[in-house]
Amino acid sequence: MDWGTIINNTLAGLLTPTTIAFALAALGLAMHFGFAGLLNFGIAGFMAIGAYGYAISVLTFGFPWWLGMIVGILGSIGFAILLGVPTLRLRGDYLAIVTIAAAEIARLLFLTTAFTDVTGSADGLFGYNKAGGFTDANPFPPGSYGFGPWTYNSETLWVITFGLGVLAICVWLLWALMRSPWGRVIKGIREDEDAIRALGKNVFAYKLQALIIGGVFGGMGGIIYAAFANVSPGVYVTSITFFIWTSLLLGGAATIFGPVIGAVIFWTLQAFLSNILPELSSSGILPVDGTQAATLRFVLVGIGLMLLVIYRPQGIFGDKREMTFVK
């Protein structure tokens, strides 16, 4: 087995545009679930809206890249309002059902051939980074940067730098909000919204604000992902939602840095498994063929998620007392 390549690829997974994109989405879920107690199973939908909002406004409407990204953010705000207004007055589980369905509806609308001109249907969208000027905004001259597993060309470096900047802003925003009295109300709502209502707080408005903020983080995740790869409806499937949930629970749902670290660990682990499992199968240690071995990692992710929820529900960084499923 070629351990050098496996280790190299695994370490490379620590810092990629994908890792940053998923860290952002996990941060959004931390706002939703960890702090406000909102069960959002449609985070992939928020990412899709962000990514398509950016790509479509550049390609179809000829917006510059930054305006396109703002449109993507506005799109995720709209999506949050659309989901929140009818469901936030109901019990939490209804939001879970509605979000999972809405995310699928969004994905299928992007996939359908009815809007091929705009959405590109199954082929998705590409070329918007160049058309919108995001590529030209790159301050790094062409060349190779970094060392070892972290060697990037100037384009990837630009996306990573931009993504880390956005991530830093979002982490700061979540931290600043959660230490404030606003964050105290949000955590109170997670515990018992009737008690908060009885103290004269407009619970519905707070929940909607939390849904919007987390949704914007998710949308930003989608935009960063789109800034690196093409926009394709095949990406924003329900399993992506559960990958993000795994990252979140891994790091600790009610923490600020937990979701970020969780996403890093998750994608590093994914890189490791997707390298080592086919190797194990080709050297005859695993009794399955190469394709099956590559799929096996998703089985392992599922088992990992179950073990995590059962034995360490507060995640790596969480306070055991603060976030448990057993109340």
């Binding site: 404030s180 955590k187 109170g188 515990e191 008690a195 908060i196 004269g200 707080k201 976030m323």
Partner: peptide, 29 residues
Amino acid sequence: TKALSLLTVLDNMKLGAKDQAGESIWKAL
């Protein structure tokens, strides 16, 4: 009884106060 279990006793109390500027999302920042 609705105690907010996973908030501290002091945070439970502070939640009760009315007209807190920091409870507006913009001022909270």
